[in-house]
Write a protein that binds this DNA or RNA. Structure first.
Lengths: 219, 219
DNA sequence: AAAAATATTTAAGGATACTTAAATTTTAAT
DNA sequence: ATTAAAATTTAAGTATCCTTAAATATTTTT
């Protein structure tokens, strides 16, 4: 499948299963940086290939085949991220950029080699789950966003759900990293801000960030 | 630049500097598996982009810029080959296939990371020279093809110049590998065959193979 | 040097993945 | 329930990279 098609099914999958956005053409178009008209065109074309179900004016739905393709691409993306992070010590933003390109030119054979080499990891360095070779993905996620944590508790960062360089740079500077511990000092409910302590520093995060940082309570 | 363009300049470079074929559109078309007409079209388009000099009915010539691009792609290809061979122990044929895809989606930044990781190697597992980040390539090659060796002498394999799976499979089976030693037992000049000994086995190679296996005399 | 063979170019056209602008449908507001 | 706003679709068109078939130029043979 072409790069455009792979990115299209990936965008549908992510909107649907991850970001909780709807999957109408306009939303997919925005995510991919193409016009609405182009998204409608692609939707028809993918329906012909039996990758999605398309009804005019309705949200786009992946078929079983379409979801399989999306999961394959996501698998390759996240395996590359894990690999580049480990092998070349590249930043969260860098690995995302490179993986975004490599994912489309990676054979299933090579993906399996990378996976084996890494010990078949279940999560990438952002904490995103890596589908296995059969397209099975760990979805049972008990973690919550920082915005929903309780004052006084300690949490372990489980996921940094973003593609944004500024966010990753911020995280790198302040030690917000997969596996690290944060203490929630105060929830400013009205202002939708959260005050946390990490590495003995206090920082105040607004909703933009507390909604994409996932954590598990530390016991 | 697009995949098609990168492959086009690469094909010109290889025909010209490596395989000693001429670089008229027809020859490039054959190498790339496209029609002659498509090659002519591309030639005009690349000339517009100042990647080649194009005169009707003449051989295609890379401009300085075009050669730079070709060397960049070749660098990425050969770095990937070296990397995949070392890290995942993949065969000569497999690394070629994968590198053929990855080469177009690899940033200069990542290429340099791979190079550093490998200790900035000058040759890939086929013995092909790897251009450095400035596009400089080791061309002073003192090696000769097996077809030109002398009876009774011992040689070290320095290069297996091919993209062909059958050839690589043959090499793998018989221990014909970069760095290994062969003894030339007999040259059948008339029949253009060469009898060699490797790992205490005697094998007889015809010209198809002796012209793409390069060696250096062992002292 | 002319004829035959070969290679290259031109011409016309197709598929893919986009664009903008206009028309249509859906959704939200009053 | 209309109307206004927003989103989606259709229509027309573009760029890239390919195709086959026909025209033209070059090269080889005699």
């Amino acid at each position: 499948m072409s790069v455009a098609i792979e990115n299209f099914v990936k965008a549908i999958y992510k909107n649907d299963k991850q970001d909780g956005n709807d999957t109408k053409p306009g939303n997919i178009a925005k995510k991919l940086g193409i016009s609405n008209a182009a998204a409608t065109d692609m939707a028809k074309s993918l329906a012909n290939k039996n990758l999605i179900n398309y009804e005019k004016y309705k949200a786009l739905e992946l078929t079983e085949e379409g979801e399989k393709l999306a999961l394959k691409v996501i698998r390759k993306h996240r395996l590359w991220e894990a690999f580049l992070h480990k092998t070349f010590d590249m930043s969260l933003h860098e690995i995302h950029k490179e993986a975004e390109l490599l994912e489309h030119e990676t054979s299933d054979f090579l993906a399996d080699k990378i996976s084996t080499y890494l010990g078949n990891p279940k999560f990438d360095p952002h904490g995103d789950p890596i589908p296995n070779a059969n397209g099975e993905i760990t979805t049972k996620d008990t973690s919550i966003t920082l915005s929903k944590t309780k004052e006084g508790n300690a949490y372990i960062i489980s996921r940094l759900m973003s593609d944004d360089k500024e966010f990753f740079d911020f995280c790198a500077i302040h030690g917000l990293k997969y596996g690290n511990t944060v203490i929630v000092e105060k929830q400013f409910v009205k202002n939708k801000m959260t005050q946390i302590s990490i590495n003995n520093n206090t920082i105040l995060l607004n909703e933009d960030f507390t909604k994409i940082i996932y954590v598990n309570e530390k016991k």
